[in-house]
């Protein structure tokens, strides 16, 4: 039990760190947004996993081609994806300081999002008119209707929140109170909402 002092070890911990905004060279706002998105994505993953579990456990599942208007869904998807592209343009414009252009593209994005929501509302109304509820539906096992309403509804809620965020950002940009960093955050969120749809679309409507 002699005194062992290992300079070797002390040195091993001498990795200096300059402080500041590293390690990912991002601001904390952006890092936090990313973490939030990961968490939220996992929530969607949870829903989709439940959906998959219930669907596998069901004796049968309705034929999607008969139930859904796939053209409408394709249109919805297009609207949402193009709004993603316009949003990316807006973010880029903000980075270069072209605020007029930012506002214009934000409005385009808003239009895309609203079009998506409108079509989704139409789809829902069609479903409800046909007699689908959370408890049952005319096409097959009850979990079909329930998971449809729950998952598309949850995504729709995300789109709606996104639209509110976009509206606020648009107003702020028009009045010169926005910064590029803020736009980037809104852009991240909007891209996430798009991306989730890219998962829901095939898993729910195609496969």
């Amino acid at each position: 039990m002699e005194t062992v002092q290992t300079i070797e070890r002390t040195e091993a911990f001498e990795s200096p760190w300059a402080g500041g905004v590293s390690p990912f060279k991002t601001s904390w706002q952006k890092l936090m947004m990313w973490l939030f998105i990961i968490g939220d994505a996992l929530l969607f993953a949870g829903f989709l996993a439940i959906y998959g579990f219930v669907r596998l456990a069901s004796p049968s599942w309705p034929n999607r081609a008969e139930v859904f208007h796939l053209e409408l869904i394709a249109l919805m998807t297009t609207a949402l994806i193009s709004s993603g592209a316009t949003m990316a343009t807006a973010v880029e414009a903000a980075r270069r300081g072209h605020w007029r252009m930012v506002v214009r593209f934000l409005l385009l994005t808003l239009a895309g999002g609203l079009a998506f929501l409108g079509m989704q509302a139409y789809e829902w109304s069609q479903f409800i008119a046909a007699g689908a509820t959370l408890q049952s539906n005319p096409w097959g096992v009850p979990p079909f209707g329930a998971s449809f309403f729950l998952i598309t509804g949850f995504h729709g809620a995300h789109v709606s929140i996104g639209i509110v965020i976009l509206l606020i950002t648009a107003v702020r940009s028009a009045t010169g109170r926005s910064r590029a960093g803020g736009l980037e955050l809104a852009g991240l969120y909007w891209a996430f909402v798009d991306l989730v749809w890219v998962f829901i679309f095939p898993l729910f409507y195609l496969i």
Binding site: G39, L42, L43, A45, G46, I50, L134, P143, A146, L150
Partner: peptide, 25 residues
């Protein structure tokens, strides 16, 4: 916490639906 709470959140939402809106997850 960030990685695993979403699973319970999803489940809790669905249990609420089962209890009050007649779904059967």
């Amino acid at each position: 916490g960030l990685l695993t709470f979403p699973a319970l959140t999803a489940a809790a939402i669905m249990l609420l639906f089962d209890r009050h809106f007649g779904t059967s997850f």
